[in-house]
């Protein structure tokens, strides 16, 4: 693997200038906004705990067919652009209700930078994806950054035009599954990163990059 350290420097600089990411929070479906649980400027947290077993901060309650559903934060940050005018009103699906301004953590900066250094599989079509069950088991068993795959192995299943397509790893060699970017069965726009792999022999190089970022970007 050729690592372009200059490119990494440029990226780091860019991230340092604007170390935030904006996450819009949309309604998952239609319903009525019953209540807001946060105010503009509130800080919220995503799921926490060793196994992410503690759910994130409640943001608002969306009620549909007498089922009040608490919509929670999936990430840490500050609430902004809260649509308070929607309180008590009917909303359609995928309406943006608020945004979470999320300060990038060290880990996220690392994964952002690594996107440029890793072997990333992108969505070729706007479609729904899942991991091949065997791969998913492997990740469950060994964890990310440890589970291994081989070139030529089927790694993803794309549900597209009502049919299932297997996606293979085209390159030869052994890879570590470094990161998974999508949620199962969620519609992923074309061109989005799906999964990041790291050639097993490049792990040391990668660790060097990570160490560098850790140094330069204190947590």
């Amino acid at each position: 693997m050729k690592v372009d350290f200059k490119e990494i420097d440029r990226l780091l600089q860019k991230l340092r200038a604007n170390p935030y990411k904006i996450f819009p929070v949309e309604t998952p479906h239609t319903g009525y906004i019953k209540e807001f649980k946060v105010k503009e400027g509130d800080s919220v947290t995503g799921p926490t705990g060793k196994w992410l077993e503690k759910p994130g901060t409640p943001l608002f309650i969306l009620e549909r067919e007498r089922n009040p559903k608490i919509i929670r934060a999936h990430t840490t940050g500050i609430v902004q652009n809260l649509r308070e005018d929607l309180k008590g009103r009917f909303v359609q699906a995928f309406e943006t209700i608020l945004e979470i301004r999320h300060p990038l953590s060290q880990e996220e900066v690392i994964s952002e930078v690594l996107l440029s250094a890793l072997h990333v599989i992108y969505a070729e079509e706007t479609a729904r994806f899942i991991l091949v069950p065997e791969i998913s088991h492997r990740i469950e068993k060994h964890g990310l950054k440890r589970a291994e795959v081989r070139g030529g192995e089927d790694i993803l299943i794309m549900t597209f035009m009502k049919r299932e397509h297997f996606i293979k790893i085209k390159e030869e060699g052994r890879f570590i599954i470094y990161q998974v970017y999508f949620k199962p069965f969620e519609l992923v726009p074309k061109g989005s990163p799906l999964i990041a792999l790291c050639p097993s022999e490049d792990l040391p190089v990668l660790e060097r990059i990570v160490a560098r970022i850790r140094e330069e970007w204190p947590s």
Binding site: H29, T30, R64, E65, N67, A93, E95
Partner: peptide, 10 residues
């Protein structure tokens, strides 16, 4: 706009 044509709740 709804989440899915199959979502009876929507």
């Amino acid at each position: 706009r709804i989440s899915d044509y199959r979502d009876m709740n929507d």
